[in-house]
Design a binder for these strands. Sequence first.
DNA 1: CTGCCATTTTACCGGC
DNA 2: GCCGGTAAAATGGCAG
Lengths: 82, 82, 82, 82
Amino acid sequence: MVETGGIAADALRSFIERVERLEEEKKALADDIKDIYAESKSVGFDVKIMRQIIRLRKMNEADRQEQESFLPILTPTLMPLA
Amino acid sequence: MVETGGIAADALRSFIERVERLEEEKKALADDIKDIYAESKSVGFDVKIMRQIIRLRKMNEADRQEQESFLPILTPTLMPLA
Amino acid sequence: MVETGGIAADALRSFIERVERLEEEKKALADDIKDIYAESKSVGFDVKIMRQIIRLRKMNEADRQEQESFLPILTPTLMPLA
Amino acid sequence: MVETGGIAADALRSFIERVERLEEEKKALADDIKDIYAESKSVGFDVKIMRQIIRLRKMNEADRQEQESFLPILTPTLMPLA
DNA sequence: CTGCCATTTTACCGGC
DNA sequence: GCCGGTAAAATGGCAG
């Protein structure tokens, strides 16, 4: 049987704790985002549509990056937002 | 017709940009996590098992917190139920 | 061009109808569950707490099954990690 | 303090077990549905699109039922399936 | 009507 | 490069 209390276990523990730490931060950000959506909604915006806009902008962004290899700067910095 | 270039549009734009900013940060963290897994793997750990460990620890953590929080009377008498 | 009214379309139709049938049954069960909660409430039980109990029991069940299934060596030595 | 081992607790236990039983059946159906999608996919259908079709048909169904109060039988029994 | 929770859908990641 | 499975996002539904 391997020595489970040895160097390898320490390294494993370290990796796992680093991951867990980062996942906590990630969750905090996710919560922040939820808060923003909640606030947006409370001010009368339609969250579902906001998500759609963001999705579209992300896609456009991806497109743009792919096209920049070919094209000069034609696309505006910010999509007009409806 | 409402003025679509007015205050509301500005607020919407602001909310959306805040969300997008946070999502970028979130993605950065996700990438960091991926890096850790990659490194772990390169040192011989089984990524799949690492994920399982983390999942288990998260579940245990959640259990504990929820158990402690309340249902202090009902839980012990009812839980076995077998 | 493929023959859209042919074998493939029949198979697709069949799959879809099977899914729809099962979803109807599923919905019926969901309704039954709703009825039970309604009855419970009418007899004085707190539905929210009932749901919590059920959730806890499901989590415990899941934990137990996953714990038993394996990681028999790693878990005890690593889990505390405190 | 209430008698936690008394009649009320029995009733609660009964309700909870009934719910749990039904939820098991519901889960079984959900698994069956997943199986069908898996099989569909293995035969070359696009699951994502199948879901869309089913969603549309459900919406049409809802529409139809709402309109039947006004209209005679004009809508066909089965939407053509693409 | 609002917030919460369950379910469902989508996206991702590692393995083959 | 696909596939299976797991985690995250999103939608829908229910209780208050």
